[in-house]
Nucleic acid binder design. Structure first.
Lengths: 344, 344
DNA sequence: AAATGCAATTGCAACGTTGCATAACATGTG
DNA sequence: CACATGTTATGCAACGTTGCAATTGCATTT
């Protein structure tokens, strides 16, 4: 007479398996079952086996709401997803990387898309005050990123894709942008370029500064002319294409270009080509690549790769260790750029 | 003596605001506060105002774990993210669309990346049996998609990006692939093509069949030759490029091509161009476009657009209505293809 | 035989919320 | 004045979990 009136029905109509169910089946108390499942060492081995068996047979999975209410642990990590369009399929790769890393753990991933960058502190504030997640992953980090500041102040577990300039250390995983720029400059110099240009966007990120600094330094070392085209972030693809066209026919056309974004590379190459430039001949171009499709599009062009899938995985592993209390000093890693040089 | 030992500390050290807090502040009982906040009409207006004021002043937000434990409502929607790479930035656009639609609601988005397609029923099964979300969004739906079957059987709220062939109706939002194919064929015919080819991948989706059927029908009506290049899904971008190259130099080269994917379009165009074909001259090409970057890359080529951001928003709205109990018959919508014809 | 020590198990309260059943109170009716 | 009626507010139990304090059973020791 109770099975019909029970609220706890699953799709199939059977009652949900909770600790209570296991307790009833095994004849043990609820507390014992709970303790056993959490690996209580004071329990008899026989008891523990019995509980494990029953849990497995019944397909027990701890109720997230129960755990969360009692312990405060959400078993959720939050990805704050920047709206940036620089890198093709960045979101998919990052999410797949995270997903791969949390597979088999109790963690779920919630994604919080960001629409307006200046409101990003609201997002973080919401997560902090509502205990929405156990940890946060942010991307496109700035040197004095207010989101980082907030989470440091709150002592909340997070990891940033990108470094900062804060005195207090924090967990991060970052692309080694300095090496990227240096590699690119050396490659261009090696190909005989004497007047190179860096096309780069979004100066709000730390990577921007790292690239610019390294670019200048390495060009100086190689003794070649180095120019920077800034503010590309605000340009639409069509405008960027126009820039490429202008560049192609300019009197002081550079003989080497480094581009930090796939989207800009596509637009730029379109303009340059339309302007009559043959890439790899009159102008050498090296771009930062993440998606795998661009090498197919531009098989003759050099590129340097960041593996965003791997970055997602690494960020996640760092974050989980941070959540488990690891010292942030041990949670700082860099990914080496992977050069893809064409024809020697 | 209790403030120090309290567990419920927020980052700032202040106690978390719960119904109890409001009850203490207003001098009302916990039950009354709860009732009032949920809009209990039996309460005096004066009381309700008092509660609302206090809640606002204290910044009360209902605890998700508490609500979830008590009611079973998770306030979560789950996006099962297909690993497909056909469409550039599909994931970002979809997620942003969903994010935009749930903004201001109590819903959060969790994303479950899918690695192996044949395990997709495990994912759904997990969600169903663990009450992980209130509703699910799936993409890349097949005609007899087992995920759909499962959720129909379980009477679980979901919406699919794509239609199915099941007898039992369900909520969906889909791109009008038939119109896409028809539009494309007519455009090619109008440009004088007499021998057109459809390059299409992944025959596991319903869209595949819709496109193929419509393509054949419309070509027959126009009285032109119609070929289909199948199985493109399994080809790498490099292989696809090779296909383009082969096609360019083939004796029976088609004079018009329709491509259903951005990634394949990029690779294909690369091969065709390398083979000496000038798109828009010897061969006309129309592709399905979602990202906005391709028109910059191929300014001379026609395309037909699906707005994935809008699709994400629409899917979400349908799903939320479904969760609220709307009849599925009212939750089926199609998005019209948006032609972007170049030069008249 | 009572007391001690130890191993193994359990009762209880709490986390924040909701909804039912009931209580308190004021007002109107016989 | 006793009683019913309606309005407004509240007590209580439950959702599933955890961790502490307490209990049980049993073998040793005094």
């Amino acid at each position: 007479m109770s099975s019909k009136t029970t609220k706890n029905n699953m799709a199939s109509g059977t009652r949900r398996v909770t600790l209570k169910t296991i307790a009833e089946v095994t004849g043990l108390s609820l507390s014992t079952v709970s303790l056993s499942l959490r690996g209580g060492t004071t329990l008899k081995q026989e008891t523990r086996d019995k509980v494990n068996e029953a849990a497995k047979a019944l397909g027990y999975v701890p109720d997230r709401a129960g755990v969360r209410l009692r312990t405060g642990k959400t078993n959720v990590i939050a990805l704050v997803l920047d709206g940036s369009e620089d890198s093709i399929d960045f979101a998919r790769n990052m999410i797949q990387g995270i997903g791969h890393a949390i597979h088999g753990t109790r963690y779920h991933l919630t994604v919080i898309p960001e629409f307006e960058r200046h409101l990003s502190t609201d997002t973080i504030n919401y997560i902090l005050s509502n205990r929405t997640a156990d940890g946060v992953i942010i991307t496109h980090t700035g040197p004095r990123d207010p989101r980082v500041q907030m989470m440091i102040d709150a002592d909340f577990p997070f990891v940033s894709h990108g470094r900062t300039e804060f005195y207090t250390p924090h967990a991060y995983h970052d692309f080694h942008s300095e090496d990227f720029a240096a590699l690119a400059v050396r490659r261009l110099a090696g190909k005989g370029c004497r007047d190179i240009m860096l096309v780069i966007g979004d100066d709000s990120t730390t990577n921007y500064h790292n690239i610019v600094t390294s670019f200048r330094k390495e060009a100086a070392r190689a003794g070649i002319e180095a120019r920077i085209f800034q503010g590309a972030a605000k340009l639409s693809p069509a405008d960027m294409r126009a820039v490429g066209l202008d560049l192609a026919v300019a009197a002081d056309r550079p003989d080497g270009i480094i581009c930090d974004s796939e989207m800009r590379t596509i637009a730029l190459v379109g303009g340059l080509t339309e302007g009559g430039v043959t890439l790899g001949r009159e102008v050498q171009l090296i771009y930062k690549q993440t998606s795998g499709i661009l090498p197919t599009l531009f098989p003759q062009m050099d590129s340097i790769r960041e593996d965003v899938f791997a970055a997602g995985g690494e960020l996640t592993r760092l974050l989980l260790r941070r959540i488990d209390g690891a010292a942030v000093g041990d949670l700082q890693t860099l990914a080496e750029p992977q050069p893809h040089w064409r024809s020697g």
